[in-house]
Design a protein around this nucleic acid. Structure first.
Lengths: 110, 110
DNA sequence: ATAAATACCTTGACAGGCGATGTATATCCG
DNA sequence: CGGATATACATCGCCTGTCAAGGTATTTAT
């Protein structure tokens, strides 16, 4: 079961930053990482991913550099900045908060 | 602490239907109910609310009728249909599912 | 050779949230 | 009485984020 597009929307930045909290990585790999660790349920489309990188870089949350592969296609790596780490912590706490609120609003049939 | 717009987006329909699972209600009251039961954290803007009613009615999830108040402003009541109840159950299960997936994607600092 | 996987990126359409604005009624307070 | 505030509906147009479609280039497997 996969996640609806409008649910994706609220979490794209957090999920990308979450990968970068662990290690530097590049677009294609970040995408595959998210897809794999969600068991195929959470998939960012490429256009969404690159839009997000642009947004995050403009916001100063990540910075990028080209990898120096002597083999394979060129890779653009991203690093999370201090500002990005701060942003991630905020987004994570927003998520914890939203979980409670939404849960409390959802009618439970018995 | 309030919920970000892009988080709202993914849950508007579910939250409205959730109120209507309990009882028939009208726009202004649904809005106040959500605002109150979230302790002011989850607020649907009026434009968002009425857009959602239109969407839900077009989808056959709710139906509406005018209240017969002899006093106060006129109220348009909404009832959830069987289709709407089914939709709500789906949205609720989507939410339960999304919670797990997103949680599993979020980096936890220790 | 050809297909598939890796890897990047842009454009334009579309959907949903929401600020601004408008209507009308009722109530509260001085 | 008159102005402010609350109740209650609704629409228009902007903005933002997703994503289908399309494009380029390299490497690996068949």
């Amino acid at each position: 079961m996969s996640i609806a597009a409008d649910l994706i929307r609220g979490h794209t930045d957090a999920v990308i930053l979450s990968v970068l909290m662990r290690r530097d990585s590049y677009g294609y790999d970040i995408n595959k990482t998210i897809l794999l660790s969600s068991g195929g349920a959470y998939e960012l489309k490429e256009a969404t991913l690159y839009t997000a990188f642009k947004r995050l870089e403009d916001a100063g949350a990540v910075s990028s550099y080209w990898g120096d592969e002597n083999t394979g296609a060129r890779r653009k790596y991203y690093t999370i900045t201090d500002k990005g780490k701060e942003m991630y912590r905020q987004l994570y706490s927003d998520w914890e908060n939203a979980k409670c609120i939404i849960d409390s609003l959802m009618y439970k049939e018995k």
